[in-house]
Amino acid sequence: EDYYQILGVPRNASQKEIKKAYYQLAKKYHPDTNKDDPKAKEKFSQLAEAYEVLSDEVKRKQYDA
């Protein structure tokens, strides 16, 4: 799945936009606030993985290549 789609940001998003999108979605899908939703944990880990790659310039360049 596309990391940009997961975070809901365009491919040319700035680091600030990526961070903002991640924090909004992380708050929304955090397992502690969605105890009754088994998919929230999965969504949250996808968000974390996408953010880890896109927030790191080197990893992001490799991902975009």
Rank of each mutant, 00 (worst) to 15 (best):
P10H: 12
Y23F: 11
D32Y: 03
D32L: 08
E42N: 11
P10F: 06
K41T: 09
K35W: 09
I6T: 07
I18D: 00
Y4W: 02
S45M: 14
Q62L: 11
D56R: 02
L25A: 07
L25Q: 08
K28M: 12
Q46A: 13
S45E: 09
N34P: 06
P38C: 06
Y63F: 04
D37Q: 05
R60D: 01
S55T: 05
S45C: 10
A50E: 00
I18N: 00
H30Q: 09
K27L: 13
Y29R: 05
Y63S: 02
K39C: 11
K16S: 15
L7H: 01
E1V: 14
K27N: 11
D37N: 10
L47Y: 05
Q46M: 13
L7N: 00
Y22F: 13
A50T: 02
Y29G: 03
A26H: 15
E57I: 10
E52Q: 10
D64P: 02
K28Q: 13
F44Q: 05
A48S: 12
Q5Y: 13
K20C: 11
Q62K: 09
K16T: 15
Y4A: 01
Y22V: 02
G8Y: 04
A50W: 01
V58I: 12
D37Y: 06
K59L: 09
E52L: 11
L47S: 03
I6R: 10
Y23E: 15
L7R: 00
E17F: 08
V9R: 01
I6D: 02
K39Y: 13
Y51K: 02
E52S: 15
A65C: 11
V53C: 07
G8S: 06
R60Y: 01
S14A: 05
K39T: 13
Q46D: 05
I6W: 07
K43N: 05
Y3T: 01
K61S: 06
L7Q: 00
D36I: 06
A48K: 14
T33G: 14
L7G: 00
Y22Q: 01
R11H: 14
Y29I: 06
Y3M: 04
A13V: 05
Y63R: 02
D37S: 07
S45P: 04
E57P: 15
K28Y: 08
A48T: 14
D37F: 05
A48P: 02
V58S: 10
K35D: 12
Y4L: 01
K61Q: 11
K43E: 05
K27R: 11
D56C: 04
K19N: 09
E57W: 14
K20G: 08
N34A: 10
V58Y: 14
V53G: 02
G8M: 06
D37K: 05
V58W: 11
A40F: 08
D56H: 03
A40P: 04
I18H: 00
K20S: 14
E49R: 14
K16C: 12
Y51L: 04
G8I: 03
K20A: 15
K43D: 04
N12A: 08
L25P: 00
A21R: 09
N12E: 06
K35F: 11
D64S: 02
K59C: 05
R11M: 05
K61V: 05
S45G: 09
T33P: 08
D64V: 02
Q15W: 07
L25H: 04
A40V: 09
S14T: 15
K59W: 04
D36V: 05
I6L: 13
Y3I: 03
I18F: 02
A21H: 06
E57Y: 10
K35H: 14
D64E: 04
T33M: 13
R11D: 03
K20M: 15
Y29S: 04
L25F: 04
I18S: 00
E1P: 14
D37I: 05
Y51W: 08
A21Q: 06
R60M: 01
S55H: 06
D2A: 04
K27E: 14
Y63C: 02
D32P: 06
T33A: 13
K19M: 15
K43T: 08
Y51R: 02
V53D: 01
A48N: 12
